[in-house]
Every structure is written in structure tokens, then in C-alpha cells.
């Protein structure tokens, strides 16, 4: 992961971003993709959860991720 790119855990609540390729083991990447969190998808950060996680909106689905997972997903902010 390039040090210049932003990650999901760094985005404030309410922001919208386009996802990059997660630096996770393949089975986890696949599960994220199945849930709609695939490279190129746009997500909105909806709220914070205990322990530094976030609830994300991807289309109509809501996915909760923990902090460790968020840190491994590159995300470029996009204007709304």
C-alpha cells in the first residue's frame, strides 16, 4: 500500500469514497466483494462503532467493519 493513499479508517463520518484493493487474505477480499465492497465501489461512512469500527453504506446495504479491516482498505475520497 502506498503511503500517500488514504485508508477507510482515516475518513470522517459522512464522507464518501471509492475503494481500492484491500490488503487482506484472498478469502476475506472475496467476502468483502460478495458483500459489495469491491475495488471501484463507492461507499459512504455512516457512523462509528465501539472499538474504532465504522458502519458503511454501499448502495442499499449496510456493512459493519472493525478498525483492523478498515486500515487495510485503501479509499480515495470523492465529492458527493
Amino acid at each position: 500500500m502506498e503511503s500517500t493513499s488514504r485508508r477507510l479508517d482515516q475518513l470522517p463520518v459522512g464522507s464518501r469514497a471509492e475503494l481500492g484493493s484491500p490488503a487482506l487474505e484472498p478469502s476475506r477480499c472475496r467476502r468483502l466483494a460478495e458483500l459489495g465492497l469491491r475495488p471501484g465501489a463507492q461507499v459512504t461512512v455512516l457512523s462509528r462503532t465501539p472499538g474504532g469500527g465504522r458502519v458503511l453504506a454501499v448502495e442499499d446495504a449496510r456493512i459493519a467493519l472493525d478498525r483492523a479491516t478498515l486500515r487495510r482498505i485503501p479509499a480515495e475520497p470523492v465529492s458527493r
Partner: peptide, 18 residues
């Protein structure tokens, strides 16, 4: 367009840190 739903508003409380 996709907006905040009632569920999202509920989650701002029910999944909030404290």
C-alpha cells in the same frame, strides 16, 4: 437517491461507541 434511512438514524445510537 440513496439517503439516510430510519435504520441508519437508529444505528447512530444503537451501534455508537458509548
Amino acid at each position: 437517491p440513496v439517503g439516510r434511512t430510519g435504520s441508519d438514524r437508529a444505528d447512530r445510537i444503537l451501534t455508537a461507541p458509548v
